[in-house]
Design a protein around this nucleic acid. Structure first.
Length: 447
DNA sequence: GATACACGTGAAACTG
DNA sequence: CAGTTTCAAGTGTATC
């Protein structure tokens, strides 16, 4: 029984590791994340950290929790999955060793961390369902989420169109039935899933439950959308494995109908240099770079998505052109609007982090400051000359949510300049919470 | 500008 | 036998 492989800790480790075979396991031990065995050897090589052992011959490599983010970024950047195993029990209360659980798995497609992602483009995790057995022909379903913004897209299309969709979304990771063959570049992470997970009937139930709907009609989903619905089901199931804590900020899915958009195959898109230069590394040559004068990350992502997704519906095209005309014709109004948008940060991603309960005080401060800019944005919209000429602009105006309640709540609760981390303290204003004030007085010696 | 140590947990080696 | 000490990674901080 002196076998080091059978110590209580190693039993716990092997139990957890057996359920995360395909990931590097970051195993929390006090103030360190430890990796053992093969994980330790791979990570030590990739991260240039010391491969050691605990005297019992078990290979070990570890990083302090405080410095873990940078190492995680490198591992995920290298195309690996990393499962984060935390202590889920107060060590003081624990008898024997402390209980541990995987609370999150990071993959290239499942990232919420701030600063790891390019602000000007979405980071999609995509599920693809393909018709079983048939090679070519049949219909494919695509479901895509951007975890950082909560965006959720569905599309059903002929199988031949898959390469077009996949190059348009440029996903970081693709989940599909293990036997499916997909037109994907080598650097895109492939995640094989069981075929039954793509079952549309199962997925309908899951979607209805998730978004609290009696039926999917409300989402504009009919029987013809089954392939995409099946993909959505598999995607949700996979996400619940990656984020066992749940994803509160996932938006209701929106359906892309190919009849409203111009078909652009991958070759065309490339040759037109819409968003990527033909010669890798060339700067300033794409259409996107040429016309991108957006102020916020939301605008940058939207413009990019629009360029990759040109409309074919005349009415909607005219609407966009009308909006453009109003803005072009009113130089002063336009610069007012730009000015108002200047202070608006990446609300989508900040809100995503807030909803996931992982926003820092400083990020909440950025959210507050952004919200407080919104009245100015709305005012500049209203102030545009001849704004009534544009259906799109008036619609945007009437749908505009100032988020005043949230802005006021954040303004009341947060200090003017909140600290970068909660641990530093001093995030919450005096006078907001009586109990907190009292605790602070006690700590500071009281009067 | 080097060098030592603590950080938190658990195993193993050591002590009485 | 039970209790105590030692040790292990990268980083920040304290001490020379």
């Amino acid at each position: 029984m002196a076998d080091p492989l059978n110590s209580p800790l190693m039993l716990q480790y092997r139990d957890i590791k057996s359920r995360h075979q395909d990931a590097i396991l970051f195993f929390r031990m006090g103030d360190f994340y430890e990796m053992f065995f093969d994980d330790a050897e791979r990570a030590a090589k990739l991260l240039s950290i010391t491969l050691t052992s605990r005297g019992d011959g078990i290979p070990l490599a570890g990083v302090p929790v405080k410095a873990a983010a940078e190492y995680l970024r490198q591992l995920v950047g290298a195309g690996l999955r990393v499962a984060i195993c935390e202590q889920v029990e107060d060590p003081k209360q624990a008898k024997g060793i402390v209980k541990r659980e995987v609370v999150e798995t990071l993959t290239p497609g499942a990232l919420l961390e701030e600063g790891w992602l390019a602000g000007a483009r979405n980071n999609y995790l995509v599920a693809v369902s393909t018709a079983a057995g048939t090679r070519g022909g049949g219909e494919a379903g695509v479901a895509a989420v951007d975890l950082s913004t909560g965006e959720f897209l569905l599309e059903t299309l002929p199988s031949e169109g898959l390469s077009e969709v996949l190059s348009r979304l440029a996903p970081a990771e693709v989940a599909s039935p293990s036997d499916a063959e997909l037109p994907l570049d080598d650097y895109v992470m492939r995640t094989p899933r069981e075929r039954w997970e793509f079952d549309p009937a199962l997925a309908r139930e899951e979607l209805a439950r998730r978004f609290n709907l009696a039926s999917l009609d409300g989402l504009g989903l009919g029987p013809a959308d089954d392939p995409a619905i099946g993909a959505a089901g598999a995607l949700l199931r996979y996400l619940s494995e990656l984020q066992p804590g749940g994803l509160k900020h996932l938006a209701r899915p929106t359906v892309r109908r190919s009849d409203g958009h111009l078909w652009l195959d991958e070759m065309t898109r490339r040759n037109l240099e819409l968003v990527e230069p033909l010669r890798a590394g060339a700067r300033g040559v794409t259409l996107l770079e040429t016309i991108d004068a957006t102020v916020t990350p939301m605008g940058a992502r939207l413009l990019r998505a629009w360029l990759l997704n040109p409309l074919s519906d005349r009415e909607r095209i005219e609407e966009r052109l009308d909006a453009g005309t109003v803005l072009v014709d009113d130089t002063r109004g336009r610069s007012r609007l730009r000015e108002a948008l200047e202070g608006v940060r990446d609300i989508e991603r900040l809100a995503g982090r807030a909803a996931a309960g992982r926003a820092t005080p400083r990020e909440l401060g950025a959210l507050r400051d952004s919200f407080l800019r919104l009245p100015d944005v709305l005012e500049s919209l209203r102030g545009l000359a001849r704004r009534d000429d544009s259906v799109a602009l008036t619609a945007a105006e009437s749908a505009f949510d100032l988020l005043a309640d949230l802005g006021q709540l954040l303004a009341a609760a947060l200090e003017e300049r909140p600290p970068a981390t909660l641990a530093e303290g001093g995030a919450i204003r005096r006078g907001y919470d009586a109990e907190l004030d009292e605790s602070r007085d006690l700590r500071d010696g009281g009067k």
